[in-house]
Every structure is written in C-alpha cells, then in structure tokens.
Nucleic acid binder design. Structure first.
Lengths: 250, 250
DNA sequence: CGGTCAGTTGAGAACTTTCAACATGGGTGG
DNA sequence: CCACCCATGTTGAAAGTTCTCAACTGACCG
C-alpha cells in the first residue's frame, strides 16, 4: 500500500520481498485521513511517531508572531515527515495538509525494530533523510539567490522530478494541487507576484498550467531557465551495492 | 582539545569522563590547518570522513552556474560538518573557510566505533544533527519572510547564542569575523544593502559593531526587533535523562 | 608609495509588494 | 432551480524595498 514510498526507496536500492513486507505491515498499523488545510502536527507538540504521506500533499511550515507564514518543505505521497525528530523535546514547526490526505503513523518502536532487522531499509531511510536535508539546503539557495521566475521554475522542476520518482507523472504532465497562496508561502513571494510569475512562465511556453494540471513541455528548457540541476535530489541509485538479490530468478 | 564541541554536546547531556576521552582521542587523529577562503570540501567530492571545526569560521555554500553564491550554513568552532553525509554518492555543495581555521578530520569508522561503544555520544550526535537541520529550516524562514534588517538581526542573534553555547562570548560581546560580502551571500542580499542594514541596526542602538567585534547591548531588544525565538536551537538540555553520573563525587 | 581589500556613499533602475477592484467557479440554502 | 457566497485567480497602479553601478575612503601590506 505504501507503494509511492517503496518506489522512492527503490530509487536508492532494491529491496527484498521481506523488506517490502516489513514496511507494508508497519505502515498498515495506524492510518489516518484528514481534510485539506488541517494540522497533522502542531508547533510545540512532542510526538513519538513518524508520519508517512500516502495520498495528498502536505507541508512543513513555520509561522511568525505577526502571522507571516513560510512553508519550508512540501510533502508529496511517499514522503516521510520528521524521521528521528523525537530526539528533540518539542517540534519547532508545524505540519499541515494542503489537500485532503491520508497518512500512516509509524511508531518509533516499530521503525526501530524494522531498521534493526533490515539493514538495507535502514540505509534507505538514511538516504531519504539526507536527501530531505539536501532539498532543504537547495530551498535556501532558491530563496536567497534566484529571481521570482527562476525560483518558481526551480520548484516546479523539483516537484515534477520528485513526483516522477514515485510514479505520479504521466509523460510530461503531473498535478499541482496547491493554491497560488500556498506557492507564495513556499517561495517567499506575494500571491500577486506568484500569479504574474506563473503567467510569465506560461507566456514563455515553459509551462502549461490549467487548474490543477501542470504540463512541462520541455523539461530541459525549464531547468535551464531556472538554473536547475537535479544532482541535489540524489536520484542515482547510489545504494546499488546494497541491492537485494532475490533467490528466485525470472 | 575539542572543548567547544564537547561544551556544545553538554548543552544536550552530560558526558562521562570516558565519553570525553573517546571524543578527544578521535579528534586528535588527524588535524588540519588552512587559511581563509579555502575550500575544505568541494562540490562533487566523495569524502569518507566528517570535519569538526576547532578554530575559525567556515561555511557550507552552493554556487550557481552564473557565479551567484549562497552560503547555506555557517560553522563556528565546535560545529560538525556533514555527519553521515557519505551515504550520498557525492557532495552537492562545498565547504570553505571564511577565516583561517583548524579542523579535525574524523573518519567514518572512528565515529562509528565511538557511537557503538558510547550510546550517550551517539544520542548527542543525533541531537546535533537534528539541531543543524532545524537551523537550516529557520534560515529558509529567514530568507523567505524577514525583511533585510530582521534577517540580519536574526542571524546575529543566532550566532551570538551559538557562540555563547560553546563559550565564545564575553558578556554581551563576541567576534564577527565575516566580511560584509560573506554576510551578503548568507542572507541573499547585496553587500551594499548589508552595509546599509548594519548601519540601520547600529543607528537603532541594537548592535555595536566595530571591526570584527560585535556587541549586543540588549539581546532581548534585538530578538524582538528580528522576530527571533530561540526554540529552534533546542538548547534546553533535553537529553538530561541520559546524563552521566560520575562514580566520584566532589 | 602603490596596490588591494573591505567598507561606505549616492542616485537611478529594477523588482516585488500592497491595496483595491473585479472575474470565475463550485457549493449551499432558499 | 436559482441566488448568493466564498475561495481562488486576475488585473492595474502606486509605493516600497533592494539592486546595480560607480565613485570614494581607509587600512594594511609589500
């Protein structure tokens, strides 16, 4: 059932049937369904589990006292929120949904048990954690150095590749279920400017965005226009030395 | 010798004498001294060790093809660069010094051996890693939502508290050895604007900055002006349940 | 003494925000 | 079934912030 998550981990290494079963049963333990714009975790909480997004989109965000909000990470199906975060006393940020969503709560104990018994999974979770950190760094670059259109184009490239990594694209097309206000909070821009920047990208033929449907006619062109290089996503099967060798050949 | 690092870890938990010795000997293995503005790690490298800053300041940065540079993290004495990063194939960023610096190279094997034998250290390293990630998120908020003066004030608050955490402040005073150009690259602003913003902060009486010497006459005031809350640094001795109980009482 | 680096200043240009109005669409109650 | 409402997206114009360019200062070094 956590097929997007499994698919993502297999970008790093091939899992054995036993690995997959272990993850499936862990994810089956406790499942929740929530509406759009709901908090899953609030700032100040102390949670003892990890959340895995199964369907829908969510985000990690921080809010300033005066109401300004910054989305610091977007979560799409297959994304794991806050691995190991429970070493810290309390959450310094919140996690909320952008769309209706379902997610699995995996307890720390369950995750620890799996990691102990399945070293390949442990490595893959490590990889996932490090890639998340790398994405966070790239967002810092994005906000610090890129112009509005580069910034937005960069985000769309990243999301497209991440969605493709979990099997949620078709050809050069994917969904973009966020509102323009969500994009604004993620990019540190006003909604008005997001709107105009999207129009610029459309006018330049770099994207086709109708409603929640995004098409990127020429990904290489969008990447070039956004100074995007995919290396920071580390989608290069770098854990192949750990690949499971199944006993049964085809 | 890695006194700043030890002191930082003790913000989280108290280490035993054995813990401290293990860390000291690990850090003594290989020590390097480099000048200012030198790269310690280059983008594309594949390193098998972790670097611990002993003296001087360094940074993690990413550079765009057209030369724009974003500093995504600052390292002060006691900071550890890139724990566990070697799960990834190659570095997606570089690490360079800002000032002359000395650092210790700790091999992955050494670190792994310590972690296995000293669970308290392993937990403390985890805490350090998670705090670094938290700081990275806060920088994203900083670049996305705060105005130039809030942004710069926020950074100065953070640096002051981090330096205080490793014993490198005296009263309300510390060093700030970066150039304005470095600050600009870290804050996503131009050097000219950094210069003017520093003047604003000075004029408002929030900082006194002469050469490399920074004084913050009223930290609470600077925090308030910058919408700074220290919770994200997690300096709250949250690992106290792990505190070492020394067999010898004083 | 000349050169270089860091810091400072002025002025205009460019980018982004704010405010306010208007358009569109889906959903709800009458 | 229609009327209304609200969330989302769109547009215009003025204001505000930040950048760029260019010049100049002061300190340190060879």
């Amino acid at each position: 059932m956590p097929r997007h998550f499994l698919r993502k981990l297999e970008l790093y290494t091939h899992l054995s049937a036993a690995d997959r079963e272990a993850l499936e049963s862990a994810v089956g333990e406790k499942r929740r369904r929530v509406g759009p714009r709901e908090d899953i975790v609030r700032e100040g909480d102390h949670t003892g589990h990890v959340n895995l997004v199964l369907e829908g989109w969510a985000c990690r965000y921080k809010q300033l006292e005066d109401g300004r909000r910054q989305i610091v990470a977007l979560f799409v199906p297959g994304d794991l929120c806050d691995t190991h975060i429970d070493v810290l006393r309390e959450m310094d940020h919140a996690i909320g949904t952008l769309t209706p969503a379902t997610y699995a709560e995996v307890s720390r104990d369950t995750l620890g048990a799996i990691a102990a018994r399945h070293p390949r999974i442990m490595q893959a979770l490590w990889w996932d954690t490090l890639v998340s950190a790398s994405i966070q760094r790239e967002w810092t670059v994005n906000l610090g150095q890129r112009s509005a259109s580069e910034r937005l184009g960069h985000l769309l490239c990243e999301l497209f590749l991440r969605l493709r990594g979990v099997g949620l694209t078709e050809g050069n097309h994917c969904v973009l279920p966020t509102t323009q206000a969500d994009l604004a909070d993620a990019m540190g821009l006003s909604t008005v400017h997001i709107n105009r920047t999207l129009q610029d990208l459309r006018r330049a033929g770099l994207i086709v965005l109708k409603g929640r449907n995004l098409t990127i006619p020429d990904l290489a062109a969008l990447q070039a226009a956004s100074l995007f290089t995919p290396n920071y996503l580390h989608f290069d099967h770098i854990g192949r030395h750990l690949d499971a060798v199944e006993p049964v050949a085809v």
